[in-house]
């Protein structure tokens, strides 16, 4: 395409695409505020706006409890991943010990293992451990990830040896080197792992549906799913949209401020997967 006319066409394509991706969210958020009868109009404008859908939704499901659960589960498992996987990545990148290459091979192997294979046996394990309907089932199986270990390993291998030598002369232990020297030098890796893992757990719906049946333990994706498929919200579109909105608003707000990090991190995880 050449000339001003071509540029204009390309620009119109981009604008149309942006509307396709953004407008449904605008429509949905407007729908949560409009009277029920006006939700299914194309325009986001309503005759009046109110929080009625949210109030009714809050009275029907313990959405704040599930918000708390989602935060709890996502934060704890992400913190665990950052600490435990950077420890493993550090040992694989920087320490010599027998079996190191075997462990590395095992991690590569687990990365290609399809989850369909272990889904049911993992559930059986939860039953045997007595973890069904507990936070442990939602958190412990997600405290490590092969992707995070490999990313940390790769990052740590690029740190110059002289820095480590100097740190050892200063009397730092291996743990000291990891957390006081490597961590501050590895912010991009920490951010990537943090975002990718947190988002994965925050959005996960299948595993909670399998291991949790008690309402007090449910995370938001599970709560909203069950609300949407059960008869509870039937014929009340505003309620369903309000429940979905509560789930995505926190992420959208964080995304507005950190979008560059989100995009780079998730693209990295795509490349690695």
């Amino acid at each position: 395409m050449s000339g001003k006319f071509g540029k204009l066409i390309l620009y119109l394509v981009l604008i149309a695409a942006a509307c396709t991706f953004l407008y449904p969210f605008v429509w949905m958020l407007a729908g949560t505020l409009k009277p029920e009868a006006e939700i299914m109009t194309f325009s986001p404008l309503g005759s009046r706006y109110s929080l009625d859908s949210y109030k009714l939704m809050i009275s029907k499901i313990p959405i704040f409890r599930s918000l708390f659960n989602s935060l709890l589960v996502s934060i704890i498992s992400t913190v665990c991943v950052l600490f435990l996987c950077s420890m493993t990545g550090f040992a694989l990148a920087r320490l010599k010990f027998k079996g190191r290459s075997a462990i590395f091979a095992v991690i590569l192997f687990t990365m290609v293992l399809p989850f369909q294979l272990t889904l049911i046996p993992l559930y059986v394990l939860m039953v045997k451990l007595g973890w069904v309907d507990t936070y442990a089932a939602l958190i412990v199986p997600y405290t490590m990830s092969p992707f995070a270990i490999l990313l940390f390993r790769q990052f740590f291998m690029a740190i110059p040896e002289e820095l480590i030598d100097a740190a050892r002369i200063d009397g730092l232990s291996d743990m000291g080197i990891l957390f006081r020297l490597f961590w501050p030098l590895s912010k991009p890796a920490l951010i990537t792992v943090g975002i990718v893992h947190f988002m994965g757990i925050w959005n996960e719906a299948l595993w909670p549906l399998i291991v949790v049946r008690k309402e007090e333990i449910m995370t938001m994706p599970q709560m909203v799913t069950l609300f949407a498929v059960s008869g509870q919200a039937e014929a009340q579109i505003g309620l369903q949209l309000a429940a979905a909105a509560v789930m995505i608003l926190p992420i959208i707000i964080v995304y507005l401020f950190l979008q560059r990090y989100f995009i780079e991190s998730m693209a990295t995880s795509g490349l690695k997967g």
Binding site: L10, Y11, L14, A17, A18, F21, L22, P24, F25, W27, M28, G31, I39, M40, M199, W202, N203, A205, M220, P221, V224, T225, A228, I237, Q240, L241, A243, A244, A245, M247, I248, I251, I252, Y255, Q259, F262, I263, M266
Partner: peptide
């Protein structure tokens, strides 16, 4: 192209939001 970063961020938004929420929304669409 002007506002390139904006378009990239706009296209990426559905990637970060929950699949459950997206599906609840599309069910109505």
């Amino acid at each position: 192209i002007p506002a390139r970063a904006f378009f990239r961020a706009a296209f990426f938004l559905p990637v970060v939001v929950s699949g459950v929420a997206v599906t609840v929304m599309w069910k109505q669409l």
